[in-house]
Amino acid sequence: MRFEVRETIPQWLPWLAVAGAGIGTMCFAAILIATAGASPLAGFKELFIGAFGSRNAITETGATATPLIFTGLAAAIAFRAKFWNIGAEGQLYAGALAVTYFGTGLIELPSFLMIPFLLIVACVAGGLTLLPMVLLRQFMRVDEVVTTLLTNFVIILLVSYLLDGPWKDPYSLGWPQGAAIIDAGVLPQLVPRSRLHLGFAIAVISAIIIWLVQSRTVFGFSGKAVGLNQSAARHAGIPVTKTIICIGLLSGGMAGLAGASETIGLKGYLTLDLSPGFGYTGIAVAMLGNLHPIGVIFAAIFIAIIYVGADAMSRAIDVPTYLADVIVATTVLAVLIGLVLVRYRVVMRG
């Protein structure tokens, strides 16, 4: 028996690898639950009840999946073109800052105009936050991984400053939070009396649009070509720099929408703990979704189940909630192994 490099990889095989990685991750989670002194079966039961067990649990899972779809798309779009945008966390807050600036009374429009307007400004803010790093990479060869990562810290400090001082809601009883978004700018609930809001539908529609753009347009093809081999793409006459700039704007824009949907959909105002690392988790979502926009939707729901379920589980059987973060991180590594293994096949004789 030996391994042999495949000449072509069947299209379904990477998805099998992703599914295998998901199962492998859950096995690892079972070991950790056992290490924490609880029964893995009881743990998974609590996890699924916590994520699906009631109407409230299901809507909560959907609400958590919403920002993850957006940040997952942000990472998937950029990574597909081998542009390593690790700054979704900062771009998310940039989007949240933009909707807070425009949505707390500066501009008042009827709801059907106000909501699209706020989504657009958030998208633009996220894209513009990433733009300098795109330009630095393309024109000065400054590594984008580090610049996007460091920008996260800068933007979160900016948010902290604004919420401490000029943008602090005077009615917030000392909590550092922004003023409330005006009623016309708030996203309606999808299910009454729940936290599931229109943002979820917008996220799913965004994913579908991006999938169509990637699979049906010249721009989508250029992005893929740039990701596979930048110099070959250049020789083939693809405008590489222009393509990367557009991809950067789109990627940052998606992260900006995550911030907008959390602010005008879930919370109604800006806080400093708006995102518990959704920007970073988006990378895991993108990997688990095989960098495919539709895959991202399912991956985001899967990871939302883990987050919401692990929270319930940790309350029920006393396993540290950090288990959810461990599972998410394990997912990234497991998918990586899976995607490497599908490059090979097992030959029984020889």
Binding site: F79, W84, I86, V145, Y280, I283, A284, M287, D325, V326, V328, A329, T330, V332, L333, L336
Partner: peptide, 10 residues
């Protein structure tokens, strides 16, 4: 890139 980010998260 992805391995490194994965290791950091993990």
């Amino acid at each position: 890139h992805v391995t490194g980010i994965g290791i950091t998260l993990f």
